[in-house]
């Protein structure tokens, strides 16, 4: 099996790492990371995994000479191959790229591996790794090489780590859900299931803004297609929701809220509910003296955040 020493011996190096999309004028907006990333997609919000496909191309260089032979991982006359394997547990799928074969005689290898991902194929993340396989066994292996893997399809290991492609990340999606309720249910509500805000993630299953799309005011809330920055009603709802969110947090976890309020030390996980609350209060300088002020400053901030074209800070 491969270990780091083996990798060092062959001088494995990833070269270019490119993304593209078949839709004209659409770029996957990756963060320009090199292997092994992580790579995030859809920065500008134009490319998205539902409507757009993804082409990926990576070039790697290495000198595999030391793989072959008794001290290596494969028989001297075997043919090996390098391939990009991908798995996506959240999408229940896995697969691989083209395989680039090489032998001991190949000298320095430059392998370009391609992958194409369909639109509407993935959710969450896809993990990529560069793996080596025996492609063609050595028909007459040396006696000293008999312990080596020598059958096609046998996996020799992977190099260079695992690259994560983020198709959807929790942190890029505000927990928001539309649901079909009854017309005389409320237009919006807050769902708050968490009991441990420092651990529980700020995701839709824990905390959520739910909009009832069968409420008669839904058209007014939604506004006209293509309307920039949402409708006035949306701003009001978000401001109210944020206020309720903080209040419920305060009610269920007063100690956590105290720390947030006084800006004293609080330990929380990345992406947790407390993380978001902390960010909200501190970045936007929400007045926490009393409920009135809190609500007032929140309202102001929300309006500002929307009207400014919703830019990131």
């Amino acid at each position: 099996m491969l270990d780091r020493q083996a990798a060092a011996r062959i001088g494995w190096m990833p070269e270019s790492f490119r993304f593209s999309c078949s839709t004209p004028d659409v770029d996957p907006e990756s963060n320009g990371a090199s292997w092994p990333g992580p790579v995030t997609l859809g920065h500008q919000g134009i490319w998205n995994p539902v409507e757009h496909d993804l082409f990926l191309e990576i070039t790697m260089r290495f000198n595999p000479a030391t793989f072959f032979g008794a001290e290596g991982i494969a028989c001297s006359n075997a043919a090996l191959g390098i391939v990009l394997e991908w798995t996506s547990p959240e999408s229940s799928q896995r697969g691989h790229s083209n395989i680039v074969p090489f032998r001991r005689e190949s000298g320095k290898v430059k392998a370009t591996l391609f992958l194409r991902f369909d639109r509407n194929q993935f959710r969450g993340q896809v993990q990529l790794s560069a793996s080596f396989y025996v492609v063609e066994p050595d028909s007459a292996p040396d006696s000293a090489e008999r312990h080596l893997a020598n059958r096609s399809g046998l996996c020799l290991g992977s190099l260079g780590g695992t690259c994560s492609l983020f198709f959807d990340g929790n942190g890029s999606l505000f927990p928001f859900v539309e649901y079909a309720g009854l017309p005389d249910d409320a237009l919006w509500r807050i769902r708050y299931e968490s009991s441990d805000p420092c651990e529980d993630l700020f995701v839709a299953d824990m905390v959520c803004l739910e909009i009832n799309n069968r409420h008669p005011d839904y058209p007014a809330y939604k506004g006209v297609d293509g309307q920039k920055g949402g409708t006035p009603m949306e701003r009001q709802i978000v401001a109210s929701w944020l206020t309720m969110f903080l209040l419920i947090l305060k009610e269920r976890n007063p100690d956590v809220f105290e720390c947030l309020k006084n800006d004293t030390y609080l330990k929380f996980s990345d992406g947790s509910i407390a993380h978001f609350a902390h960010y909200l209060l501190s970045t936007f300088q929400i007045n926490r003296e009393n409920l009135q002020n809190l609500s007032a400053t929140l309202n102001k901030v929300v309006a500002g955040q929307f009207l400014d074209g919703a830019g990131t800070l």
Partner: peptide
């Protein structure tokens, strides 16, 4: 589905910090 994503992303751009959680904008 697209609408939901649109709104979620738009709200995220306004209110979530970069590098938040498993952020596909920045990790």
């Amino acid at each position: 589905v697209k609408t939901n994503l649109d709104v979620s992303r738009r709200l995220a751009r306004a209110f979530l910090p970069a590098g938040f959680g498993r952020d596909s904008r920045f990790v």
